[in-house]
Design a protein around this nucleic acid. Structure first.
Lengths: 350, 350
DNA sequence: CGGCGTCCTTAATACGTATCGATCGCTGGT
DNA sequence: ACCAGCGATCGATACGTATTAAGGACGCCG
């Protein structure tokens, strides 16, 4: 029952077929030279392999060739994004789909987070290398790990723009700059002139890009920058009914909101508006700079843009395979977001 | 930029530290003998490793040890169940969770289905063996593959009961027999005596178990078997308004429905009932023998039972690890389903 | 000063495969 | 009869690590 019998190797097959191990390798893995094996020999080998129940040892093979036909997926998030409600789930979907399409297998590095903090080089070992390359994911990344990965020349692609000083990374990102400036230009076109911006303090790439998009949208519309009131996340305690009324009194007609993990900004804004008796969009237009989940938290059809998450996953895989196969230098890919009109933005008459 | 530089090995580190490769191995992988390395040597090695950016090669390591700390997940379904609406998705969730909990990585064999039909032994190669063991999934399995897997002594666990003549498999299954007999006994208790049963023709384990549960429930309630009218799937064309009225006329008060991939049985039944002017549950009680998705297809809260899918995934992993670590003989695990009262079953007045 | 044990390090080997160069047998041409 | 040429096969080696048996340095005791 429980023999734990060592599975047969090419040597076993060779012995049985009366040929050398090299010949067995030629037959079963038949590279370019696989044709030059005599038909009778091939049959003998295959029969022996069949009888012994031989199967190729993928580990040994990849030790030799350095290739595995496996792509890794690693996430810096504390828990692996398999939950369908998770922000990251669509990325996973896209990655899986593309991986399968290219006839690779997908290795989920779930184990990495078992002990709390997610590090690639836990215990000095880089498990990622079992795969031919790796797609990375997550907000809470460790830049040191990325530097180390890059210096090792290990092929990887981040989903989302990530910058590390002194290193050129590959990533597939949503074009937040373009999407945000589109939103701003649209607001201006609708007659808005004074705008508030609820910003995440944590100054990471995604926040930075939205801010750049904001200024860019203003510039392109010829609106001076001092027409914008920026409220950073630490100041959210200040996002009260009083604050809202004050803004309105000062002529503010629209608010841009950057979504967060928990979408608390949107919820806070909605609550403050309700308290202040401010109607959206009649008294105040609101545009969300992204694609919040907001299952039960808010039923409203916000004016927003959606991030092409599945597509980002697919493109990450494609880019990764280019890195691996063509050994090209790092690439940065940007994908357009899709504007969703929604009903939280109104026109300012005349 | 794109040097594709070979990453440093223990040999490189050894050279730089002025010791042998074996010593490096002792230091970095420090087995039981790791302590017997002089402190000065250890420091020198670690420094050299640090400077070279050495990381252990997981492939080579597992070639040596025969272990990988990877579990595989393979599905016989045509497309990998990453879609959240998929029947199989919760299994995946459970498997992933448990895998991570045990600090293993999860290898999704997505590639296997790229060329249409899913076979484990595509091209004579058993890719599954890269992993230490494998969880299997899916309705459209190839029993030959299972036989071959079993004869190879490769550890694997099926999610769902699967039987193959002459081989003892491991699986984690939902207790369909118990759940169905519970439903039947409940119907009897409510006064139902003549019952119809809509059965999937394709006689597989899951159908068989429900039928066994049906007869068992009847027997335990002391109801003769001829009180049941079985309608197999091929006869669904017969599931018309006329048929329904005929049943009612013959005294049938309840219908058991086995769910299918597309839940077409339920939809067909609901449509026929509407056509015939038969109200559920007033004129006819309906119990679903399972856990249909039915997103838009039917809004009703059917009387049914739910399959503990995530738990099955978790238990599959646990069982698999027992097979691997303790090298035990095959195990079969059954998990209880949960009855959901719903509102499609009514009492028959005394 | 020899013998012995302790502690540290190393050489050698195995894991299973892929691949290159070498070899061997054979045919056909001159 | 000899050699070129070719097709088929094999021997040897490398991939990077873990492990075991053996070796060497050193100190301690008699």
């Amino acid at each position: 029952m429980a023999g734990q019998r060592r599975s047969p190797t090419q040597v076993d097959v060779a012995r049985r077929a009366g040929v050398s191990q090299a010949t067995v390798s030629l037959v079963v893995s038949g590279g370019a030279l696989g044709d030059q094996v005599a038909e009778s020999t091939r049959e003998a080998v295959l029969r022996a392999a069949e009888e012994l129940g031989y199967t190729v040892n993928a580990v040994a093979r990849s030790l030799k060739s350095g290739r595995n036909r496996m792509l890794g997926l690693y996430t810096f998030e504390p828990v692996f994004p398999v939950d369908q409600r998770d922000f990251y789930f669509p990325f996973l979907l896209g990655v899986e789909e593309a991986t399968a399409a290219y006839a690779y297998d997908l290795l989920l590095f779930s184990s990495a987070g078992a002990g709390g903090d997610r590090r690639i080089y836990a215990g000095g070992v880089n498990r990622l290398k079992v795969a031919d390359g790796c797609v990375l994911l997550g907000r809470h990344l460790h830049r040191d790990d990325l530097v180390e990965l890059a210096t090792e020349d290990f092929p990887f692609v981040f989903v989302g723009r990530r910058e590390v000083p002194g290193v050129e990374l590959s990533y597939v990102a949503a074009d937040y700059v373009g999407a945000t400036s589109d939103v701003v230009r649209r607001l201006i076109r609708l007659g808005h002139r004074r705008i508030a911006y609820l910003k995440v303090t944590d100054d990471r790439e995604w926040t930075h890009d939205r801010e750049v998009g904001l200024w860019q949208g203003l510039a392109e519309s010829g609106i001076p920058e001092d027409q914008v009131r920026v409220l950073a996340m630490t100041e959210w305690a200040a996002l009260t009914a009083v604050q809202l009324r004050e803004w309105l009194a000062a002529g503010t007609t629209a608010v841009l909101v950057e979504p967060t993990d928990d979408d608390s900004a949107i919820v806070a804004l909605e609550r403050a508006a309700a308290e202040a008796g401010v109607r959206i969009p009649d008294d105040l237009s609101v545009a969300v700079l992204g694609d919040p989940e907001l299952r039960e938290a808010s039923a409203r059809d916000w004016t927003r843009f959606t991030i092409p998450r599945e597509q980002m996953g697919r493109d990450a895989v494609r880019t990764l395979l280019e890195l691996i196969d063509d050994n090209t230098s790092p690439r940065q890919v940007y994908l357009d977001c899709t504007q969703v009109p929604g009903d939280s933005v109104a026109e300012i008459p005349g």
